[in-house]
Design a protein around this nucleic acid. Structure first.
Lengths: 130, 130
DNA sequence: CAAATATGTGACTATTAGGTCACATATGAA
DNA sequence: TTCATATGTGACCTAATAGTCACATATTTG
């Protein structure tokens, strides 16, 4: 396999969703600064804002996104930040999107020369689109 | 100002949230392939899956994230994909996270040599954390 | 003007996320 | 065994999202 370029859309959803939360990004920052931290150690940083249960839910979300890996050690759970999913996205952006940026310049130049960007010929149903 | 490095956390939330949806990413793809498209033209690509109103809500979400810019032309609204917010994130990842990747290798090497990764000395309240 | 087109708004429902809590399990230590 | 620690589970409530629809506005065209 080793298919590093194929990106599952559902996995993308999970990663973006996990990152779309300031508390969860904070948790990743904590795990970056304090690798192998357990649940309570992470909670210690967020005591003022959240209970242990909320933190556990966030950790679960991050785990489902593949951004946090865990290892059970005795009665505690050690956790690490895993940047692999971020590398996927990074790759997608540096390929697909950088190609777009170049093409975009071309189109803007084209539009600046006074041409119609796209002909308007939509044949939609009446108002309401029902 | 021209402060390209400062990233507002709320704006980050908006961008990640907007990208955490397969339909919204599809809309961005459509806008990349069809710049200056109006609402109905975008709807034409999603007719089977969504009504016009749902598409408008997604466009609104993308607009709040700064991923789509609009221009009113007569009675229609032309739209473009704006990759600027993605460039912010891209920058953050290529600086902050690449620094972490290097540090992580160091830590894994350290851990592999048999050392305790972190001393356990949490002094939390009893079970339930109430 | 009247009719068709392009878009916008507010209300509504169903689903889901965020957060808290009571309670349960698992492990280590005295 | 007894107790404290570390984590897990399910229920619960509130708020926010996704999607649909009836209706309204603005603009072009005949």
């Amino acid at each position: 396999m080793n298919d590093r370029t194929a990106i599952d859309e559902a996995q993308l959803d999970a990663v973006f969703f996990a990152l779309a939360s300031e508390p969860r990004r904070r948790i990743l920052d904590i795990l970056k600064a304090e690798p192998a931290a357990n649940v309570n150690q992470i909670c210690a940083h967020l005591e003022a804002e959240m209970t242990r249960f909320a933190v556990m839910k966030h950790l679960n979300t991050l785990g489902k996104a593949g951004l946090v890996i865990t290892e059970k050690v005795g009665r505690e759970k050690r956790m690490w930040f895993d940047p692999t999913p971020i590398q996927w996205i990074h790759q997608r952006w540096t390929t697909e999107f950088s190609a777009y940026w170049a093409a975009r310049l071309t189109r803007l130049k084209f539009a600046a020369e006074g041409a119609e960007v796209l002909p308007l010929k939509s044949k939609r149903r009446g108002p309401g689109n029902v």
